[in-house]
């Protein structure tokens, strides 16, 4: 928990937090695709593919995303 708070207030360019049943992404550049089992997102010029299940967007404020679901893998494309 403290790590999350620390990372939130730290001056990182971007980060992805993976939790038990959710995923939090800060400072993404562009969302390519959000599907039930896959999220493709561009962050600082790099494409990331997050695979899992039951993905559903629950929050989108400025450049932050909160997505509910179960993550199986995160790959750089």
């Amino acid at each position: 928990m403290l790590d999350i708070i620390k990372s939130y207030i730290s001056n990182e360019k971007f980060y992805i937090i993976i939790m038990d049943s959710a995923i939090y992404i800060k400072n993404y550049s562009k969302i390519i695709n959000i599907a039930d089992d896959e999220i493709i997102i561009e962050i600082s010029g790099t494409l990331y593919k997050i695979k899992g299940s039951s993905f559903s967007l629950t929050k989108s404020i400025n450049r932050e995303l909160e997505i509910k679901g179960y993550v199986e893998s995160v790959d750089k494309l």
Binding site: I31, I34, L57, T58, K59, S60, I61, N62
Partner: peptide, 17 residues
């Protein structure tokens, strides 16, 4: 709807089905 909002950077504070 969600794609359009994301594309145009419209904030969605909470989203529930």
């Amino acid at each position: 709807f969600i794609s359009k909002c994301l594309k145009h950077n419209i904030n969605l504070i909470t989203i529930k089905s």
